[in-house]
Design a protein around this nucleic acid. Structure first.
Lengths: 224, 224
DNA sequence: ACAGAAATTAAACAGCTGTTTTAAACGTAA
DNA sequence: TTACGTTTAAAACAGCTGTTTAATTTCTGT
C-alpha cells in the first residue's frame, strides 16, 4: 500500500505532463509508462483503462478548482456589486490554487481542458501562412487601422482570440445547439450561430486596452 | 483520364464529409474509401498520402475563400468608413461563396478549419457536467444576474464562446507567443496572456444584444 | 517467519492505422 | 486490333494502439 501509491502517483504526473503537452490522443500509454518509469500494464491495473486515467488526471484538478470556484462565487455574491469583471475575477484564485496539485498547475489544467476539446494540427497552419500569408497580413493591418485606440500587439492577440472563438464555437455548434434547445427550448438553428458570434467578437476586439499590468483582479483587496 | 478524375472527386467529397464531421484524426482512409466506393490504395495513388489528401481538401475551399476575402477587403477599403463591424462583415460573402464548392460549403469549411486546430473529446464534458453541474449552473445564473440587459439564451451562448476563447488561446499559447515575439518583439510571456484575455472576454460577454435578425452586415447596402 | 493478498513484470494478444506491392483491367492512340 | 501508359484491385506489409494473460515478486497482517 506504499509502493503502489507511489507508481500511481508517478503515472499521474507523467500523464499530466504528456497529456498537457501532446493531448490525450497524441499520448500513448507506452510513452506515459516510459516517462513514469513503470510497467505498461500498471496503467490498466491501477486505472482500469486509458479513459480511466484521463478522468483521474482531470479529477485531481477539478477537485481543487471547482470547490474553490464555488467558494469564490459565494463570497462575491455575499458582498454584492456583481459585475462581469468581478465574476471573471472569481476564476483567478481557483486557478492559482492549482499550484497545490502541481507547480504549474493552472497552466497544465487549462491546457488539459483545452485538449479535452481540441487537438492541434500544426502543419495546416504553416501550409496556410505560406500560401495566403499576405491576405492574413492585410486583414491584420486593416483591423489595426480600424482600431486606433489599440496597439498592434493587443490587436494581434485579440484577432487570434476571435479566430479561436469562431473555430471552437463552430466545432461545438452541434453539441451547444442541442443543449440550448434542451435548456431554453431555443429554436436557434446552428446556421444562425454566426449572428450570435458577431456582437461578441466585435465587442471583444474593440474593447479598451488591457488594464493595469499589476496584480489587479485579485481577491486580496476584498478583505482589506 | 476521365474515370481517374471521377474517383478523385469521389474521394474528395467523401473526405470533406467525413473530415468535417469526425475530424482528420478521427477519420481513417478505409472509412473514406468505403464512403467514396473506391479502393483503399487509390488515395495514396492520387494524393500521395493522407496529409496530401487533407491539404487537397482544404485547398479547394481556400482557393475560393481567400481571393473572395481579399476582394471584399479591397472593396471595403476603397469606400472608406472602416470599422470593426464592417471588417467582420467582409467575411460573410466569401463564406457564402463556398456554396460553389459544396451546398453546405461554408459550414463544412469552418468545421474543417476548426478540426484543423482541434478535436473534440465528448466523454469529458459529460463527466464534468454529471459531477460539477451545479457549479456550472451557479456560474451561469450569476452571469445572468450581472447582465440584466441580456437574455439568458444570449448569455448561454456567449459564456460558451468565452470558454472556447480561453481554451483555444491556451492551447495555442505557445505558438502565438512565438509569432508575437517574432513580429513585434513582444516580450509578453505566456503566463501574462490571461491579462490580455480578460478585457476581450468581458467586453464580448457584456456586449449589447445581437442586432436585428434580418440580413444586416451584408454588403448589399454598400452599393445603394 | 509464514500464508495470503497485492502489485510488478515480460510477453503476447487482437485490432487498427497509413502505406506498399503485384497483378490485372482499363482507356487510348497508332 | 495491337501496344502502351494509366488506373484499379486484392492482399500483405510494418508499425502502432489499448488491453490481457500468466508468472513472479513484493508487501502485509497474523
Amino acid at each position: 500500500m506504499k509502493k503502489s501509491a507511489q507508481t500511481r502517483e508517478h503515472i499521474l504526473q507523467a500523464a499530466e505532463k504528456l497529456f498537457s503537452e501532446f493531448g490525450f490522443d497524441g499520448t500513448s500509454l507506452r510513452e506515459i509508462t516510459h516517462e513514469a518509469g513503470v510497467n505498461l500494464a500498471s496503467v490498466n491495473y491501477h486505472f482500469g483503462s486509458k479513459k480511466g486515467l484521463i478522468q483521474a488526471v482531470m479529477e485531481r484538478y477539478q477537485r481543487v478548482f471547482m470547490p474553490a470556484l464555488q467558494e469564490e462565487l459565494e463570497f462575491r455574491v455575499a458582498r454584492g456589486g456583481i459585475s462581469t469583471e468581478s465574476l471573471l475575477s472569481c476564476f483567478v484564485r481557483p486557478l492559482t490554487a492549482l499550484e497545490d496539485v502541481r507547480a504549474d498547475g493552472a497552466e497544465v489544467y487549462l491546457k488539459l481542458l483545452g485538449f479535452a476539446y481540441s487537438e492541434i494540427q500544426g502543419h495546416l497552419r504553416r501550409f496556410t501562412m505560406n500560401r495566403f500569408g499576405s491576405v492574413i497580413q492585410d486583414v491584420f493591418r486593416l483591423f489595426v487601422q480600424a482600431n486606433p485606440h489599440l496597439t498592434a500587439e493587443t490587436l494581434f492577440w485579440r484577432l487570434h482570440f476571435a479566430l479561436g472563438t469562431v473555430l471552437f464555437a463552430q466545432v461545438s455548434a452541434k453539441a451547444l445547439s442541442e443543449i440550448a434547445r434542451a435548456d431554453f427550448s431555443d429554436p436557434t438553428p446552428e446556421n444562425l450561430m454566426m449572428q450570435r458570434l458577431l456582437p461578441y467578437i466585435a465587442a471583444g476586439i474593440s474593447a479598451p486596452e488591457m488594464s493595469l499590468p499589476e496584480t489587479s483582479m485579485h481577491k486580496s483587496e476584498a478583505l482589506s
